[in-house]
Amino acid sequence: MRVLIAPDSFGSSLTAAEAAETIASAWRTTAPDDDVTVCPLSDGGPGFLATLQSALGGELVPVNVTSPVGAATPALLLLVGTTVYLESAQAVGLPLVPDGLRDPTRTSSRGVGELLAAALDAGARRVVVGLGGSATNDAGAGALVGLARALGLPGPADVLAAGGGSLGDVTADDLVGLRELRDRLRGTELVVATDVDVPLLGLHGASAGFAAQKGATPEQAQDLERALGHFAHAATAALGDAVRPDLLAGARPSSTASRLTAAPGAGAAGGLGFGLALLGARLVPGAAFVADAVGLGDLIADHDVVVTGEGRFDWQSLHGKVVSEVASRALAHAVPTVVVAGEVLVGRRELSAAGITAAYAVGESPDQVAAALAAPAPTLAARAARVARTWSR
């Protein structure tokens, strides 16, 4: 039997490559006659650069940027010709913030702007930014400040880099220089590969959907929602006609704000998708972008079953994550998709609607989940071996 192992990372417990090798090793041991192929994936979040380098090659260039809490942290650029790939999680990832400092009203995306400036300094004609796994919820306001300062440009004001909680008081004066910053990137193609397809605002937006996992209380999440909404309208008004209008909606600032905030992926990485869209970025689904880069469709077509997975398989997984992208491409080739995840919080009806044949959890009770977090590789291997016994023929 030909088996393709194509998972995302399992949170901060296992990288995509580690998870893929763990599942593959267990499968080979259980079903030694099967032909097992490994293809780690990413949705734009952690592991984005590693996955792309394995497929595209290129040169890694080290840089230092500012973490979400103001500390210096190392990051990398991946140079492939005149294209530079960036992984925002290296600058604003949740593991960069100690548990006691996890407060998305204060954490800043400034480091992503500094990464982008380093890419421009490297001579990039095209920059691809992977979004996902962030500790921030500032709609990319901090990134705008980080980019402007790194390029030696005036404005926007430093208050934008103080975290999402400060954005509710932003004024037009704070956004002076935003148009000039957008103009500075006019000759560079900016592509943003988002890990989820959610909007900036609303029930599934950056604040309501994701702020809690970054340390926000319910009250803080509501405050962030209001603050990001205020910032979005102020920023689009500051850009004015610099943003190409939607001819169907008109050229009013409110129409531009609605279009940019509602765009799929605008809410990714705490709203970084929206912030980079202010600079003219084109938002694309990260999982699809990576899948195209590694030739996932052709790989799936040459196998009998594909096994994918991630740390927690829940509603977010069905909004542009690796699992849903794998299932979509496998369905086109009539190849069954099997999910192995740390936790499975999706029902059978949702699985069927997503084109997923079966899903298996490493941990099915609180004690088992705790055990999986304590020993991620052995527990994943044990579950993968049981899945292999079920599926190998």
Score class of each variant (00 low, 15 high):
Leu373Gln: 09
Pro253Thr: 04
Val284Glu: 10
Leu278Tyr: 04
Ala327Ile: 05
Val63Trp: 01
Val338Thr: 03
Asp302Asn: 12
Gly271Val: 11
Ala382Cys: 14
Leu144Gln: 14
Asp197Gly: 11
Val338Cys: 05
Arg106Thr: 13
Gln90Phe: 14
Thr51Gln: 06
Arg386Met: 04
Ala55Gln: 07
Glu21Thr: 13
Gly286Lys: 03
Ala26Val: 02
Ala139Met: 04
Gly229Arg: 09
Pro32Ser: 03
Val346Leu: 06
Cys39Pro: 13
Thr15Gly: 15
Gly267Gln: 07
Ser134Arg: 05
Met1Gly: 05
Ala257Thr: 15
Arg244Glu: 15
Gly342Tyr: 07
Asp246Ala: 00
Glu180Ile: 02
Pro98Ile: 10
Gly133Arg: 01
Thr22Met: 01
Val322Met: 08
Ala216Ile: 00
Leu248Trp: 15
Leu56Thr: 12
Ala262Phe: 02
Asp241Gly: 02
Ala162Gln: 11
Thr66Glu: 04
Ala372Arg: 07
Pro98Ala: 13
Ser317Thr: 03
Asp197Pro: 02
Leu283Ala: 09
Ser392Ile: 12
Pro285Lys: 08
Gly286Thr: 12
Arg386Cys: 06
Thr308Glu: 03
Ile356Met: 08
Leu52Asp: 01
Asp223Val: 15
Asp246Gln: 00
Phe10Arg: 10
Gly81Trp: 05
Ala24Glu: 07
Ala135His: 09
Arg226Thr: 14
Val323Ile: 15
Thr22Lys: 06
Asp302Gly: 07
Thr256Cys: 11
Met1Trp: 14
Leu144Trp: 07
Ser42His: 14
Thr217Cys: 09
Ala266Leu: 10
His333Pro: 09
Arg389Cys: 08
Pro264Asn: 00
Asp138Leu: 11
Arg106Gly: 09
Gly123Tyr: 01
Ser324Met: 04
Ala72His: 08
Val346Glu: 07
Asp298Ser: 14
Pro156Ile: 11
Gly155His: 11
Ala341His: 00
Ala26Glu: 06
Asp292Trp: 08
Phe313Glu: 01
Gly297Glu: 13
